[in-house]
Amino acid sequence: MNYPSPQPAPARPFLSQALPYILMLLVGYLAAVWYGQWKANQLHDPDAEPRPVTQRGDLAEDEKSTIELFRTNAPSVVYIRTSQIEFDRFSLDATEMNPGHGSGFVWDRDGHIVTNDHVIASADVARVSLSEQSVWDAKIVGRAPGKDLAVLKIMAPAEKLEPIMIGQSNDLVVGQKVFAIGNPFGLDQTLTTGVISALDREIRTSENTSAVAAIRTIDGVIQTDAAINPGNSGGPLLDSAGRLIGVNTAIYSPSGAYAGIGFAIPVDTVNRIVPELIRHGKIIRPSIGIVPFQDRFTPNLTGVLVRDVLPNSPAQQAGIQPTRSLLASQGRRVRTLVRYGDLIVSANDQPIDDLNDWLTFLESQKAGNTINLTIIRNLRRNDEETITLPLTLVPSP
């Protein structure tokens, strides 16, 4: 018997094959949407209201004092912006470059502003912003690089200027509260608080002028843990009475930002130097009429070596000897020999170990004072001798 060959079943349409899967995906999607809405309803409360405010009592007394101190002294603190002028070599157009900033404070109603010397040292242009945001062009009145102090002047009307109250630093004690107001990182009118951490610190600076070049130290520096950051330089350090006790000048930090150690120039130094800068534009030291060597040229000597003696000066009249170069012939060869001048080793029984000691001593004296100067003559020769001479100080040339 012959049976027919089996025939393949006819192919089902694609849609009929995919339909069950599409339905499953649709059901899953709807379930996910429903679950999400259900979850959202569990997270959000449409009846949520602001919480009632808990009333507080009066501010603590120390908070009131801090607030009042800031309100009183903030108008005395200024924001200083600096820049350098660069000229295009072809068009000669001037452009302000390398912007910098720092802090300062109002010294008097004549428009004198005190800041750090390093804030304005390289500036061609300086502008001062007062607390009420008015901006004034500033001119440099005087600089004292060896003390890191400078005085600017703005032509603001007296009624806009609030001079800071001046305190004293010779009676400060470790542990008393201090307050710093300044412009760290350009954030103006910033208050930070702390205590005096230590007293009588020294910080090094440099003095490079037409008259002298020396590494200087600033004595009696105040150490504080009040936050002092870049931009605070030149701002005031205040005591709890709101009086100026120091000028913030430096921090100790490997990173360059606040690390808990800041330094301020004591106000007793500031109150002595600033009037001189206003009167003369520089520190006026009395003189004996010598030109000393810089310390870097005399690294193996303890004292100040006299390079030259000015004519008709007290030093010349007292017979102070300058350093001289001598030519000595040895057969056909000619050698240059250096004959050391006098080496200053003490003044009024105060040791003079380097140029900084000598300049600091002179800054403590006045023209007309007679001093006893101890020198070593004929240095490193067989006839070396120590001599003490009286000299009368005269105004610097």
Rank of each mutant, 00 (worst) to 15 (best):
Y3M: 14
P4H: 12
P4L: 13
R12Q: 15
I22P: 00
G28T: 14
N41K: 14
N41Y: 14
Q42C: 06
D45Q: 12
Q55L: 15
L59M: 12
L59S: 11
A60E: 15
L69M: 08
L69K: 02
N73G: 04
L92G: 03
E96F: 06
N98V: 09
G100T: 01
G104R: 00
R109V: 00
R109T: 03
H112V: 00
H112R: 00
V114T: 02
T115K: 05
D117G: 04
D117K: 05
S122R: 14
A144I: 07
L149K: 01
A150N: 05
I154D: 00
A156V: 06
L161Q: 01
G167E: 03
G167R: 02
F179I: 12
A180K: 01
I181P: 00
G182P: 05
D200E: 15
I203T: 02
R204C: 00
T205K: 08
S206V: 14
S210C: 01
A214V: 15
I215N: 13
I215F: 11
T217K: 15
I222K: 03
Q223F: 09
I228S: 03
N232M: 09
G234Q: 02
G235Q: 10
L238I: 11
L238Q: 04
D239W: 08
L244F: 01
V247P: 06
N248V: 11
A250G: 04
G256H: 07
G256W: 09
A257N: 13
Y258D: 13
F263L: 07
I265G: 03
I265Q: 02
P266M: 05
V270T: 10
I273Q: 00
L277Q: 04
G289V: 03
V291N: 11
D308Q: 15
V309T: 03
N312V: 01
A315V: 08
Q316Y: 04
Q321R: 15
Q321M: 14
S325W: 10
S325I: 13
L327M: 11
L327D: 11
V334N: 12
R335C: 01
G341W: 07
G341D: 08
D342S: 02
V345D: 02
A347W: 01
Q350V: 11
W358H: 06
T360G: 13
G368L: 04
N369C: 02
I376Q: 11
I376W: 03
D383V: 09
E384L: 09
T386N: 08
L389M: 13
T392S: 06
V394W: 01
